[in-house]
């Protein structure tokens, strides 16, 4: 993340959206998950980058649909979630971690992702 704030010499600065940090995206994602699943989500587990939607968070497939819609509403003009999901095998969607999704969003928003 920190490297993103440094201007590379002699490289024209292209106008683009302000990059959103992966940490900020993670926080928003967790808030959306709570909206979809309920506050109980946070009772027993901490949601972090390594949390698997299926194994760790036990998100149902229909709940993931609702989450995708919230993400679409929040970032949809710049992040094509249907394309993202369509490129994944179902096993990959199942076992996806929160961090994978955060990184995809961050990359689409302008390269603030990585391992942030």
């Amino acid at each position: 993340m920190t490297a993103e704030t440094t201007t590379v010499p002699f490289t024209p600065v292209q106008p683009r959206h302000v990059a959103v940090s992966a940490d900020a995206i993670l926080a928003e994602l967790v808030a959306m998950l709570v909206e979809v699943v309920g506050e109980e989500l946070l009772i027993a587990t901490t949601v972090d980058r390594d949390s698997s939607f299926n194994a760790d968070l036990a998100i149902e497939s229909i709940e993931f649909v609702a989450l995708a819609e919230k993400l679409e509403n929040r970032y949809g003009s710049r992040v094509d979630f249907m394309a993202f999901l369509a490129e994944l095998e179902m096993d990959e969607i199942l076992e996806m971690t929160v961090g994978t999704l955060v990184d995809y969003i961050a990359a689409q928003l302008g390269g603030a992702g990585g391992e942030g």
């Binding site: 497939s61 993931f64 490129e87 994944l88 095998e89 179902m90 096993d91 969607i93 199942l94």
Partner: peptide, 20 residues
Amino acid sequence: SGYEAGAAGHDASIAAFDEA
């Protein structure tokens, strides 16, 4: 073709996702 491969395991994955 890439997508279809993704769809292949769907029902089974629904089972895995929801009917664990």
